[in-house]
């Protein structure tokens, strides 16, 4: 579906590891993740809670809260007209990464009420951010803030500057967050479940807005969600994560029409599909068990404890390799690995 990219990806992540060294043991929150985000495209990261999808986003911006930290891997970020920079090598508190945060890579969080300051007007918060990254007069910054608010569809933006977050509805607050994220024209926008707390009608409007702004500015978007419906609406590429690993990634059509990993298959079949009404007695497909606790991470393939296809003696011992089925469609599963399957065939013969 997506033509092969000639240019280097905007953000190229290889072997990213983020770990928390706790007294109870080591939590491998992100465990060897490879991802590519391209300019003008949307990459969706899907997974259940506890899969580490938010931690990937926080690792990119180096805002993992201690004792967690990025321990390994590389995240090469391509800036226009400047040298590429490896975000994994930057000091989380250092100046270089702080210049990138908010300016080149912006982030929108799930709950807009918790990510806006309740004691400052939205205008003050917007202007503060603009002045932090740009050498502008206060007057010019105000104009820019008004323009940003107007762009995200807030009526009477100049009056709204003096409003406080509690005076706005959930959808309006999320629009303010988007205005704030986009005020500095970032090259990459990371959105962490930005519509989960919103009604479907509001969600549809916010998704439209993000897509519209993406087309206008040509920015790359990394969109984190657990809702496969949202993924189908907006994604160009999809990465399915489970226990800190990408188990499958590919174009949106690969994932929805040719899913390969048993976890992806199970996720897709466990959502009640609109328009496919159940017959009496028909049941939803459900994945047995639940996501293992991070301290008891299973050995081998992380999904083998819940996988219907798992083969004892293989899946519970060895890590599956990342197998490229066709251009850009990568799956990490022993049972899709031709080498493993031919080997097994020989054994049975």
């Amino acid at each position: 579906m997506i033509p092969p990219m000639q240019t280097a990806p905007l953000l190229r992540i290889r072997g990213l590891k983020t770990q928390f060294a706790l007294r109870e043991g080591l939590v491998r929150a992100v465990d060897g993740v490879d991802l590519d985000a391209h300019a003008g495209k949307t990459l969706c990261i899907v997974g259940e809670s506890g899969s580490g999808k938010s931690m990937i986003a926080r690792s990119i911006l180096q805002i993992v809260s201690p004792p967690g930290r990025v321990t390994d891997g590389e995240m090469v970020f391509q800036r226009t007209g400047r040298e590429p920079v490896d975000l994994a090598k930057l000091d989380p508190a250092g100046k270089p990464v702080r210049a990138i945060r908010g300016r080149d890579i912006a982030m929108i969080f799930q709950e807009p009420m918790n990510s806006l300051s309740p004691v400052h007007s939205i205008g003050d918060q917007l202007i503060e951010k603009i002045l932090l990254h740009h050498r502008l007069s206060r007057h010019a910054a105000i104009d820019r803030a008004v323009e940003a608010l107007g762009r995200v569809g807030i009526p009477d933006p100049r009056q709204r500057l003096s409003n406080y977050p509690f005076e706005l509805s959930g959808g309006m607050r999320q629009r303010v967050m988007i205005a704030m994220a986009l005020a500095c024209r970032p090259a990459l926008l990371i959105a962490d479940e930005p519509t989960t707390a919103l009604d479907v009608t509001t969600q549809a409007n916010i998704l439209d807005l993000i897509a519209e702004l993406q087309a206008e500015y040509g920015m790359g978007v990394i969109f984190i969600t657990h809702d496969l419906g949202v993924v189908a609406e907006i994604a160009h590429e999809v990465a399915v994560v489970y226990l800190g690993q990408v188990v499958e990634r590919g174009s949106v059509d690969d994932i929805f029409y040719n899913p390969q990993h048993p976890y992806t298959l199970a996720l897709l079949s466990s959502i009640p599909k609109l328009g496919a009404r159940r017959k009496r007695g028909q049941r939803l497909h459900s994945i047995k068990g639940m996501v293992p606790h991070p301290f008891n991470r299973p050995k081998g393939c992380p999904f083998h404890t819940r996988c219907p296809e798992a083969r004892p003696g293989l899946c519970n011992l060895e890590d599956p390799r990342k197998l490229e089925l066709n251009e850009g469609h990568i799956v990490a599963c022993h049972m899709r690995d031709p080498a493993v399957l031919t080997q097994a065939a020989e054994v049975t013969v």
């Binding site: 189908a232 609406e233 059509d253 609109l274």
Partner: peptide, 14 residues
């Protein structure tokens, strides 16, 4: 309108 707003897991349809 509510029905139209529900995201559906069908990229081609979308």
């Amino acid at each position: 309108a509510l029905l139209a707003s529900v995201p559906r897991p069908d990229p081609k349809g979308a």
